[in-house]
Amino acid sequence: MTAYPLNMTDDLNRVITFDAAPQRIVSLSPSNTEIIYGLGLGDRLVGVDAYSNYPGQAMSLPKMGGMINVSIWDVVAAKPDLVLVGPFTPNDTVANLAAAGIDVYSTHPDNISDTLRAVREIASICGVPDRGTQLADRMKQDVEEAAKKTSGLNASQVPTVLMIITLGNQSYVADRDGYMGDLISRAGGRNVATGPQMNRTEIVKANPDIIIVPMTDWTMATFDSLKYGREPWVQNLTAVKTGRVYPVGYDVVGRPGPRIGYAVTIMTRAIHPELFC
Rank of each mutant, 00 (worst) to 15 (best):
N7A: 15
M8I: 12
I16C: 10
T17A: 14
F18N: 00
A21R: 12
A21D: 01
S29D: 13
T33R: 00
I36S: 01
G38M: 03
L39F: 12
L41A: 13
G42S: 06
L45A: 10
V48G: 06
V48D: 03
D49N: 14
Y54G: 03
G56K: 07
Q57C: 07
L61C: 13
P62W: 00
P62I: 05
G66W: 07
G66T: 09
I68H: 07
V70I: 15
I72M: 14
V75T: 07
V76S: 04
P80Y: 10
D81S: 01
P87D: 12
I102K: 04
V104Y: 05
D110S: 11
D110I: 05
D114F: 11
A118C: 12
V119L: 06
R120W: 08
R120L: 02
A123C: 06
G127F: 12
V128A: 03
T133L: 14
T133F: 12
T133E: 14
Q134H: 13
L135T: 05
E144C: 09
E145C: 04
A146I: 13
A147M: 08
N154H: 12
A155S: 15
Q157M: 08
Q157S: 11
Q157Y: 04
M163Y: 04
T166I: 12
N169G: 15
N169I: 08
Y172D: 14
D175V: 05
G178M: 09
M180N: 09
S185F: 07
R186W: 01
G188Y: 01
G188P: 00
R190V: 10
N191R: 09
V192A: 05
A193P: 05
T194V: 15
G195L: 06
G195V: 05
M198P: 11
R200V: 13
K205T: 15
N207T: 06
P208S: 09
P208T: 07
D209G: 14
D209I: 10
D209L: 08
V213W: 01
V213H: 05
V213S: 06
V213P: 10
T216H: 15
T216N: 15
D217W: 07
M220C: 06
M220L: 11
S225P: 10
L226Y: 10
L226F: 10
G229L: 00
R230V: 08
E231A: 10
E231R: 08
P232T: 05
L237K: 12
V240E: 01
T242Y: 10
G243C: 08
G243L: 11
D251M: 09
V252Y: 04
V252H: 00
G254E: 01
G254H: 04
T265V: 09
T265P: 00
M267E: 04
R269K: 15
A270S: 11
E274W: 03
F276H: 07
